[in-house]
Design a binder for these strands. Structure first.
Lengths: 197, 197
DNA sequence: TCAATATGATACGATACCGTATCGTAGCGT
DNA sequence: ACGCTACGATACGGTATCGTATCATATTGA
């Protein structure tokens, strides 16, 4: 199919081979660099040095430094799987304990403040930040919706408030008070929020 | 008093006059610049341009760019007054509504992400961040302590968890979900947390 | 008034980074 | 095997910033 002529060169289908490898190498290094120093100290020259890919080549694939940063940031969207324990409390506990586990360890947790800061003044980063944010909240929203469907949760419950009440305290400890996020803390938060539904 | 000799030159007491003015002008401009662009884009040259104070003079008062940034950041610690309505709920409501009002408007709320980001890798900023953080939590801790003293709150309540449960959702909305922080939301959070005590 | 001292203006060296140009080389698909 | 294309190495111009040096000027306090 679509093998009509040999002169038919679909550029986007020809990207296989070296190009793919270069892009991958650069993006991986870029993400690593971001994790270490944040957006501010991110440098194309440093990506080139570390990855071994010539700066010329990098600029052949990304028109500008910012484009590369944005591309690397986009790789940061966490793919969380949604649990299904049968009860709202079980689901919420599974999700929050997973996040509590990731917050002190995952690479994205080191980059996120940088993105939040940049997003404060740069619409493109605000968009990325928004996507990341929705990614974090999505599993919670899903299990909450299921609870509504089961009749376990009132249909007029304000999801947005509940999500903020659940995620807020965890994020607060990670980036503001810098206190450890242990299981008792997570359970206490969950208990508080679910008790009030 | 202490006017003993005219030859007595206490250097630190002689800083009056031009020095004071220069320092003040520079710090004010520096803070303004920080509010606009964050720590990353902060530049001594720009402070000089805007303030009209020669770069040479700036470097006479601060040994390095970072010293100036840190000094300017230190001006950011919010002095919040502690309410005393007689009830825990009243006090907490007053504090959180004040914060909810400040979060979208106050200068420090634009700089804080930058400090959080920098603090992630720089101990000096981690220290500043810690001070700012304690400043935010202090009023809450005080009214909670008063509630304990009145017997309104159990003495073995975990203050740290309560503070996180109260401030976390507000901060979450300001910097992560970027949703508005209106009075109903604040009241909902307070209700949830206080109901569980 | 006068001397000490803080300031301003300017220039400078050093460094780092962005993004481009050039040209030779290596790998890929056919 | 061969040609197209991506890649690497290198150099470059331009800009921005840090922090210092120098010297003239203004301000202050006695």
């Amino acid at each position: 199919m679509t093998t009509s002529k040999k002169s038919e060169r679909v550029p986007s289908a020809k990207v296989n081979g070296r190009v793919e490898r270069s892009r991958y190498t650069v993006l991986t290094t870029a993400f690593e660099l971001l994790s270490e120093g944040g957006v501010a100290s991110f440098t194309v020259d440093e990506v080139s040095r570390r990855s071994g890919v010539a700066k010329t080549t990098i600029y052949r694939h990304w028109p500008t430094r910012e484009a590369l940063v944005i591309d690397a940031c986009s790789r940061m969207i966490a793919e969380q799987e949604v649990p299904d324990t049968g009860t709202l409390e079980g689901d919420v506990t599974a999700i929050l304990e997973e996040i509590a586990h990731l917050l002190p360890t995952a690479n994205w947790s080191f980059v996120l403040p940088s993105i939040v800061d940049t997003a404060e003044r740069n619409p493109e980063f605000a968009e990325i930040h928004s996507r990341i944010q929705r990614g974090h909240a999505a599993p919670l929203r899903e299990v909450l919706q299921r609870a509504v469907d089961r009749g376990e949760l009132s249909a007029d419950a304000d999801m947005s408030t509940i999500v903020a009440a659940l995620l807020g305290p965890l994020f607060y400890r990670r980036w503001f008070s810098r206190e450890p996020i242990d299981v008792p803390f997570v359970k206490a938060i969950i208990k508080r929020v679910l008790a009030s539904l």
